[in-house]
Amino acid sequence: MIRVGHHPNDASRGARTGYHPAEITGTAPGPVTKDDTMNDTMDDTMNADRPIPFRRLLAVEARKLADTRSGKIITVVMVGLVVASVAARGTVAGPKPQTLAATAGIALGTLLPVLAILTMTGEWAHRTALTTFALEPRRHRVLAAKSVPPLVAAVALSLLAMLVAVPVTAVVAQAGGGPADWDIQPLWLLGWTGVNVLMAAQGLALGTLLLNAPAAIVISLSTPVLWAVVGRLGSAGAALAEWLDLNTTAAPLASGGMTWGEGARLATSAVFWIVLPMAAGVVRVLRKEVT
């Protein structure tokens, strides 16, 4: 239990004789074994003067998404819902892969923002920001690294929905559901994936602004309700909803063709829901005292 007289140096790097940074450069801290999976980063290890490479921060933040039970659960739930919704729709809607894949958007539109919010707020709930920002004091880099995995997840899950739709379509057509409609518009797939990425980005922005998962999730889940009500409040309310409801303004993206007016409305709502809260949130995190 008690292990004194065993300094890390003794075991790994020889005697501690003055610590010139140059000495640290390129010196492996321990015997690098075959199961060492981090060999690719050895070139830039142990240099205290050089900032941590961004890809390393990215690897760490991606790992944090799935290294707890709750992280694993939300991943499994999302993949499960995508597969299940595509397959279930297939039994009713017939062999139309584009329609089937789009069904997954219902689950993704809700869960991607939640995943993004949890990513951005988790470290503040458990106060692990204390450790994270002590290891990387350039907080904007940590925020950037945290933003990437949910956006990648949005793309990956969109593609997964499409991939699942193909065999489901084949099976349904085989089972007598009529001739398969293999018409898949690349522009639609791109636009629809874009919608899901925007939803994730909205979650990132809300999470970064509020740094509080319950508040951000409630806002994220209640905005469709809010806009449904606002849209019914006369012409002013309808106009407001038309320009600011990201769920509505993003829809034309998936239609394959977008008018200039639709583009302007989408840009307006994206600035309102993504750019502004993210900017304010970044400023807040950079200035915030970590306790």
Partner: peptide, 16 residues
């Protein structure tokens, strides 16, 4: 996670 961030081999976790 700490060893990854610092670019240390993962065996470092066992050492500390």
């Amino acid at each position: 996670l700490g060893a990854m961030t610092l670019g240390l081999p993962r065996t470092r976790a066992g050492e500390v």
